[in-house]
């Protein structure tokens, strides 16, 4: 089961500064476990950000990102109170999402 996510969005001038924390092992597939066998790849592949239900960012992500990543977005034209939803999908098909309102 996926661990927690936490998002925060604040107006900074004319754009919303969005920060999102996500729990994820982000395994590169290059590490070896105690048994000497490689630990299978397990990383977030896709990220999507919706503003008031409309997708504004869709992105791909690689295994070059550290465990428990912190992402930052700036969304132009957002207003206080706007609803922001952030979701991810990893290479094993697991998914998680969180919501926040622009403050």
């Amino acid at each position: 089961m996926a661990g927690p996510m936490k998002a925060r969005a604040r107006m900074q001038g004319n754009y919303a500064d969005v920060r999102v924390l996500m729990s994820h092992p982000m395994e590169t597939g290059q590490r070896k476990g105690r048994d000497g066998k490689p630990i299978p790849k397990h990383f977030i592949q896709n990220l999507a950000v919706k503003l008031n239900g409309k997708t504004v960012i869709e992105g791909e992500c690689s295994q070059a990102v550290s465990r428990n990543p912190v992402f930052s977005f700036r969304i132009g034209g957002a207003k206080p109170g706007d609803k922001i939803e952030i979701s991810w999908l990893d290479n094993k098909g697991e998914t998680n999402k969180t919501e926040t309102a622009v403050a």
Binding site: V56, I57, E58, G59, V65, F71, S72, F73, G76, G77
Partner: peptide
Amino acid sequence: MRASGKRTLLLAAFAFAA
């Protein structure tokens, strides 16, 4: 990263590597 719509955006992933 690909953006849809006309909104401006910046994205940064804060990785801390060896």
